[in-house]
Amino acid sequence: MTNIKELEKIATQVRRDIIRMTHLAKSGHPGGSLGCADYFVALYFEILNINPPHFTLTGQNEDLFFLSNGHISPVWYSVLARRGYFPISELSTFRKLNSRLQGHPTPAEHLPGVRVASGSLGQGLSVAIGAAIAKKLHNDRSLVYALTGDGELQEGQIWEAAMFAAAKKIDNLIVTVDYNGKQIDGPVDEVCSLGNLYAKWDSFGWIVLEMNGHDFQEILHTMHHAKQLTGKEKPIVILMKTEMGKGVDFMMGTHKWHGTPPNDEQAQRALSQLPETLGDF
């Protein structure tokens, strides 16, 4: 039985990391990072079959994760470090010169855990599909996971990939959409509505699941359920309801913290709501 309390503790520390990283860098994307903290913690500490100390790019016989919305790199870096991919102290170098923790993730600086660059949106799903095909060709039964934003679904390439994955029965792939309803310029519904997202994925031929991205019980249950649904000749997508800025009261309910770092005072206020549970970097 998973210790939910333990996951919550990690997630709180990850949220502290996100605030401190973006504050130190004076740049970055705290909003979506905070919103996806619970998902990343559940994924890396409970779901993925991985071997962090022995990271390889190919990742044969282990699960792979691709982040398509690369701007939420702070949450990914924090979770990768806390999971043992690289020293936690390195989080202080985020977005600084000569760092492996680039503004957007890249394998170019050889950061363990990152396999393909992302940042320019809409591309991660295609890469994940390629990786999933590679696993099939290798008779490797481990799975491929990917996360996309919801605003990112406005990119046409996503739907090229969605059509392809269903047509070619890519059934070792579990994609999650961070369905927070917000993007840089405002609510997704106002910028360019996604319409009925469930119906869209469903009509493209995917198995569609939904979950609350801030309820660990539900995340774990849904992810395990998704695993059981693999191998049935259909790709799987999970529409994950999250709140941008989750965990910091003044960052929630607005799109304004999508790409704005907290200043000194704001960082203090945010950190006062997030107790240090595992030790700061």
């Binding site: 044969q60 890469v127 390629g130 590679a134 390439q157």
Partner: peptide, 14 residues
Amino acid sequence: ANMIGIAAGLANGG
């Protein structure tokens, strides 16, 4: 566009 991404994923897989 999708083809380039898939190719990158395949290359990552060796």
